[in-house]
Design a protein around this nucleic acid. Structure first.
Ligand SMILES: [Mn+2]
Ligand SMILES: [Mn+2]
Ligand SMILES: [Mn+2]
Ligand SMILES: [Mn+2]
Lengths: 126, 126
DNA sequence: GTATAAACTAAGCCTTGGCTAAATTGTAAA
DNA sequence: TTTACAATTTAGCCAAGGCTTAGTTTATAC
C-alpha cells in the first residue's frame, strides 16, 4: 500500500529485536510474538520474511540476530520513534497518548519533519 | 495489523470520494483509481468492501455516493488531514514534505495530539 | 443509429499479515 | 535418563490490497 506502509512491520520488528537483545541478551521468538501482540506462528512467518530480505539471521530453534542492515534500520527507527515520542510530550500530549501515537507516526515522518521536531524540542527546553 | 492501520485505506477513500463529489459533482471509479494511484480493478474491489461495510453506495456502472456514515468519516478524516498539514507547515516543514507526511500521519494522531497541534498553530499565529 | 472508445466488472493470480491446530525439537525436572 | 513442558516450526485457512487479462456496459463520435 502506501510507500511508508510496507516497511512499517519491518521497522517495528527490527527495533523490537534490537531492544530484546539489549535488555535480555537475546531475542527469542516467544518474546517477539508476545511484545508484538501476535501469535508465535505469525511472528515466525514475519521473521522468515525478514530473514529472506536480509534484515535478520537465525538458525532453526535458535534465537534471532540482526544483520548489519537490520541493525542500522533498527537504530534509525528507534531514533525516529524516540524523537516523535519526546516531541509529542514536549507539546503537551500525555505520555500514554504520546506512546500510542508515536508508534504509528514514527513511520511517516520525513527527515525534514524530524528536524523541525528536534528544533522545537530544543526551543522548549530553553 | 496495527489498529489504526486497518482503517487507513477506508479513510483515504472516503475522503477522496467526498473531494471528488465536491470538485467534480460526482465520484467515478476511474478518478478514484487514478488519484489513489492504483488500477481500476483494485479500486473497484476496495469500493466493494467499502459498500459492504456501509461507507458508500453505488449501482453497477454508476458513480459512487457516500452514506451518512461514510460522509462523517470523510469529514473527520479531512479535518485531521488539514490540521496535521497546517501544523507541519507552521513549525517550518516545507509544503511538499508536509503534504507527504500528513498523508500518513493523519491516521495516527489521537484527538489529544490533534488538540495540541491546534493549540500550537494558534500560538504561532499570534 | 451504429461503430468505437472509454469505463467498469469478472476472474484469477500474488504477497502480507493474521489465525488455529498439530507436529517437532529443545530443555529442565524428576 | 527418561519424561514432561516449553518453544518453535509446519500446514492450512482467511481477508486486504495489489496486479493482469479478458469480457461487458455505457457513452461518444460520426
Ligand atoms: Mn517503533
Ligand atoms: Mn511503529
Ligand atoms: Mn487524508
Ligand atoms: Mn492518508
Amino acid at each position: 500500500m502506501r510507500e511508508a506502509h510496507k516497511t512499517e512491520a519491518t521497522e517495528d520488528y527490527v527495533e523490537l529485536i534490537d531492544d530484546l537483545i539489549c535488555v535480555n541478551g537475546e531475542a527469542r521468538l516467544v518474546d517477539v510474538a508476545s511484545r508484538m501482540g501476535v501469535t508465535q506462528p505469525t511472528a515466525s512467518k514475519t521473521l522468515a520474511r525478514l530473514q529472506r530480505d536480509g534484515y535478520i539471521s537465525s538458525e532453526p530453534y535458535r534465537s534471532i540476530f540482526l544483520t548489519p542492515m537490520g541493525k542500522s534500520l533498527a537504530d534509525e527507527s528507534r531514533l525516529k520513534h524516540e524523537i516523535v515520542f519526546e516531541f509529542l510530550q514536549t507539546i503537551g500530549v500525555s505520555k500514554e497518548a504520546a506512546k500510542r501515537d508515536s508508534e504509528g507516526m514514527e513511520h511517516h515522518v520525513s527527515d525534514e519533519t524530524l528536524k523541525a521536531f528536534k528544533k522545537l524540542i530544543r526551543q522548549y527546553k530553553s
